[in-house]
Design a protein around this nucleic acid. Structure first.
Length: 843
RNA sequence: GCCCGGGUGGCGGAACUGGCAGACGCGUCGGUCUCAAAAACCGAUGGCCGAAAGGUCGUGCGGGUUCGAUUCCCGCCCCGGGCACCA
């Protein structure tokens, strides 16, 4: 018989050892049972675990344990996203090698996860810094290369001066700062490696519709990030210095071809190569130069703040507007982005706020071409195809739908985004070879090279004769050398033993690529590796992946709404096209958990408000900590840490413990227990139903509340009814139910009670989920609220199957109600079955 | 500026599909036990008026629909997040 006293510090290590010895959570493919793949985003081995980890992995653990009890074959793996900059920073600070620091932290975190009692299949562990793992990342790189998805190109890239490396666009967040260190990033023109994620832009957007199990807000963020725009490309003819049209064309992208007649100037980005070419040696050069230089000096913040002053200069050339043959001046302007579209823009000041401001600033004409239906200008311009008016009495551009005016043969048509007029103008241009329908995306290619040491080496070789040469597949992995002294600021580029190679193609002297891959490449496919983690023949066995994938439930932080989740979707689609997997999307359902806060702020060392999970385990045990973090709030909301709340849950676990022990030591003795025992049994069924429903919609807080209610009711029954009148079997059913329902939340305590008090021999975590009968759960009697003119004036208790007439009659008999009804005329009676009666009285 | 979330007691949070607002927990107050304290147990606990019965107000603010609104509609305010010169 168990100790009467609940002692988490004795039972938790005991069961952790048993589970590990029995490999309780190790799984293999099994066609007899339906599978569930429950996955939490794997951690970065930063050191001690924090409350965010506790929350993330507790949620996943409850889900995994629940589905196991429901009879599913559940895959629930863990691993470490182990490459990355903090290891290098730690190395510089303390002199330990990044590898040493990383592996020590992994061991530390793994020990903490075991102390938390998480049900991981430890046989499938993955560490991305192991050559056995990263070699497949290199293999992926080669396969992407074969498929034309790898590109090395020069472009303006984001440079983090603090991390001393380039960053992908997704990794520049907020006001132009680095996602990791929050430093302001700089723009640099560099030659870098890219993955061509834009080749999948349309599909990444379309397939969001295949994800009903994802939060709307994540899908919206991704859709905005991809940023699809529909419109047209329009070719403008460049004139020579004398104003004579040449045969050179400059193409622009526009979403508003219907406004082409309102184009009164033409803009080039400061970085546009034509600027230099066209202006060199002319009288316009000094003014243009100063604009270009001013633009280059603008920081990311200034440029993105929207308040940056618009500046520009005429470059002395003209282009011909294809739709009306008009010559319009070409300007350089700082608000035109080289990275979007073609780096050239047709300016329509009446319809675009930026162009409007620019025109006003430099005194350029603003002829209206699309006017709102209620605009006074319409009276004057309706049906006017020519240019009657050259300015507008507006103080802002109008970009809404309206009537086309001063637009030649298109005058009178509906204008606006995607309008009839837009389509007509595009068709007209296409017939004459001057334009065509086009789609543009905001999404850019994924810059994957990093100028850092602690990462996966890019398997490529630079040969003076052969150019860029992939490392042959059979030479993988390109092993990251361990003898790089990071404390001296060394990288692979300082390591001749690493980069001096012979070219695999011509055998001549060549130089190995010394950049490493973005760590997000490591985390874009780890969920597939879990399906077959120990395979050293191939990336994973297709059959095994086909069995487990896709991930049925993915759980992680909202901060990856774009980054990791977009990259993983991209990898999955490429893998599908390679024939490795047979599905489009890796994560069927996604749960984004909220942050754990203290005093309204995120916990951080610098704020000194960190609550260490290990300390809480030491005081109250892992079970209490797990249950508490789930009880505090629904998982997707931020939660506020409070020590007192944890003590409350600890008390609850103690009460469960005592109740179960008491019931099994001294059960009631009556053969059948009468109405109170019936009511208790009814509640037991109801609570099982409630807890089941709540786990499935991730309302762990209300599931625990329901268990508390059951315990409260059972305790009152025990307190109020003497032993000889109590139904001992009913009490034992409640105790057993509580143990089973609590097993996913407090796995150690449940296991201890299951074995030592209930006397069972098989693990509680292998038991079927308790069954319930909705029929038995239904109440026999219902209390009706009786309202008169919307206010509750009395209550009646009636059998659950009472008819509306019976309910109304009973309500009318209440003295207070009768009195109120007598005061006037009853004009309406509403009976809501099982809930209330409402009388409407006039008079 | 645009797009998403969210505003409910002293606190964390409940409330199915429009049906008794505040489940459950914390805290607080009172009590039992104790020489005392802790623990445990019992009871009270949205505001205001009232000795009580009861009344009345109350889910960010202002309107509306309805017998009935935390829930639906319109207009605002505040907080959090995302995007932001994307043509």
């Amino acid at each position: 018989m168990a100790e009467k006293h609940y002692d988490p510090h004795a039972i938790e290590p005991k069961w952790q050892a048993v589970w590990e010895r029995d490999r309780l959570y190790s799984v293999v493919e099994d066609d007899e049972r339906p599978k569930k793949y429950v996955l939490e985003m794997f951690p970065y081995p930063s050191g001690d675990i924090h409350m965010g980890h506790v929350r993330n992995y507790s949620i996943g653990d409850v889900v995994a344990r629940y589905y196991t009890m429901r009879g599913y074959n559940v895959l629930h793996p863990i691993g470490w996203d182990a490459f990355g900059l903090p290891a290098e920073n730690a190395a510089i600070k303390s002199g330990t090698h990044p590898a040493e620091w990383t592996y020590a932290n992994i061991d530390k975190q793994a020990a903490s996860f075991k102390r938390m009692g998480f049900s991981y299949d430890w046989d499938r562990i993955v560490k991305t810094c192991d050559p056995e793992y990263y070699r497949w990342g290199q293999w992926i790189f080669l396969k992407f290369w074969e498929r034309g998805l790898v590109e090395r190109k020069s472009s303006p890239v984001n440079w983090c001066p603090s991390c001393k490396t380039v960053l992908a666009n997704e990794q520049v967040i907020g006001d132009g700062v680095c996602w990791r260190c929050k430093s302001v990033v700089e723009k640099r023109e560099l030659e870098q490696w890219f993955f061509k994620i834009t080749a999948y832009a349309q599909e990444l957007l379309d397939d969001l519709q295949k994800l009903p199990g994802w939060p709307e807000r994540v899908k919206t963020m991704q859709a905005n990030w991809i940023g699809r725009s529909e419109g047209a490309e329009v070719d403008f003819t460049l004139c020579d210095a004398d104003g004579t049209p040449t045969d050179r064309r400059i193409t622009v992208f526009t979403t508003r071809p219907d406004t082409l007649f309102g184009c009164t100037f033409f803009l080039l980005a400061p970085e546009h190569p034509l600027v230099d070419e066209l202006v060199a040696g002319t009288e316009f050069e000094p003014a243009v130069r100063s604009v270009v230089e001013a633009a280059a000096r603008e920081s990311a913040i200034e440029r993105q703040s929207g308040e940056a002053r618009k500046i520009g200069a005429f470059i002395g050339r003209y282009v011909v507007n294809p739709v009306n043959g008009e010559k319009v001046p070409v300007w350089v302007a700082n608000y035109v982005l080289m990275e979007y579209g073609t780096g050239a823009v047709m300016a329509v000041p009446c319809g675009d706020q930026r162009d409007f401001e620019f025109a006003r600033q430099y005194g350029l004409p603003i002829p209206p071409v699309v006017v709102a239906d209620d605009d006074a200008l319409l009276d004057k311009l309706r049906g006017e195809g020519g240019r009657l008016i050259d300015d507008v009495p507006w103080d802002a551009a109008y970009d809404g739908p309206g009537v086309m005016v001063q637009s030649g043969e298109f005058t009178g048509m509906r204008g606006g985004k995607g309008s009839e007029g837009s389509k007509a103008v595009t068709a007209w241009l296409e017939e004459r070879g001057l334009g065509r329908p086009a789609v543009n995306f905001r999404l850019r290619d994924w810059l994957i090279s990093r100028q850092r040491y602690w990462g996966n080496p890019i398997p490529a070789i630079h040969c003076d004769r052969c150019g860029l040469v992939p490392v042959p597949e059979e030479e993988l992995p390109v092993v990251l050398p361990m003898d790089v002294d990071i404390t001296k600021g060394e990288t692979l580029a300082d390591h001749p033993e690493f980069y001096r190679v012979t070219c695999p193609r011509c055998g001549g002297a060549a130089r190995r690529e010394t950049d490493t891959m973005d760590t997000f490449t490591c985390s874009s496919w780890y969920y597939l590796r879990y399906c077959d983690a120990r395979n050293d023949e191939e990336i994973f066995d297709k059959e095994k992946a086909a069995y487990w994938m896709p991930v049925d439930q993915y759980i992680g932080g909202i901060e990856h709404a774009i980054l990791h989740l977009l990259y993983s979707r991209f990898f999955t689609k490429v893998f599908r096209d390679m024939g490795l997997v047979g599905f489009d999307e890796p994560f069927t359902n996604l749960l984004t958990q909220g942050m754990v806060k203290k005093d309204g702020e995120t916990m951080s060392k610098s704020k000194g408000n960190v609550v260490a999970p290990e300390e809480m385990i030491a005081r109250f045990g892992a079970d209490a900590l797990r249950a508490y973090i789930l009880f505090m709030a629904p998982p997707d909301k931020d939660l506020e840490w409070s020590q007192e709340g944890l003590e409350g849950i600890y008390r609850f676990l103690n009460r469960v413990w005592r109740y179960v022990c008491d019931v099994y030591e001294q059960p009631g003795s009556a053969a059948s227990g009468g109405s109170r025992a019936d009511a208790l049994e009814r509640q037991r069924h109801r609570v099982i139903g409630k807890v089941t429903e709540d786990v499935e919609r991730f309302q762990f807080n209300t599931a625990l509340a329901a268990m508390m209610e059951l315990l409260n009711a059972a305790s009152e029954y025990r307190r109020d009814v003497p032993a000889e009148e109590r139904d001992g079997e009913a009490e034992k059913r409640v105790a057993r139910t509580l143990v089973l329902l609590l097993a996913p939340y407090a796995p150690h305590m449940a296991e201890e009670l299951w074995h030592e008090v209930l006397g069972e021999s098989e693990s509680v975590h292998r038991q079927p989920w308790p069954e319930w009968d909705p029929e038995l759960a239904r109440a026999r009697e219902v209390e009706y609220a009786v309202q008169v003119n919307g206010k509750v004036r009395g209550r009646v208790t009636l059998p659950a199957d009472a008819s509306a007439e019976q309910v109304e009659a009973a309500a009318r008999e209440l003295p207070k109600v009768a009195e109120l009804l007598d005061r006037g005329e009853v004009v309406k009676v509403v009976v809501v079955p099982g809930k209330l009666v409402s009388f409407v009285v006039r008079g």
